[in-house]
């Protein structure tokens, strides 16, 4: 799976994109959230953090497949 980082999450993680095909043990959005929060604790300080699967917002219970494009969506601030 490909994980994209936008806005402040890119600054926190220090990457724009990670190819995470090795993360076979990650089954759901919630599991990925827990893994990233453990590795990058500053993610937990954000007002909110949503995840998108293939350009659609996804809930924590939703399943992730190896070919999915995942994106971290911190609070949006366009306009």
């Amino acid at each position: 799976m490909k994980i994209l980082f936008f806005g402040i999450t890119r600054d926190i993680v220090g990457e724009t994109m990670v190819d995470a095909r090795d993360l076979k043990e990650i089954g759901t959005v919630g599991e990925l959230r827990d893994l990233l929060n453990a590795k990058y604790p500053r993610l937990k300080d954000l007002s909110s953090l949503n995840f998108a699967i293939n350009e659609e917002l996804a809930e924590d219970f939703e399943a992730i497949s190896v070919n999915d494009e995942i994106a971290l969506i911190p609070p949006v601030s366009g306009g």
């Binding site: 806005g7 402040i8 609070p75 949006v76 601030s77 366009g78 306009g79």
Partner: peptide, 28 residues
């Protein structure tokens, strides 16, 4: 249009000050 764009569209804004830079709305 503008209210919904600001609420839903995944676009992010960083403010640059002389001595600082801040992603808008990122923190409570």
């Amino acid at each position: 249009l503008i209210d919904t764009l600001k609420e839903k569209v995944p676009i992010w804004k960083k403010e640059f000050f002389d001595d600082d830079e801040v992603w808008v709305s990122a923190h409570p």
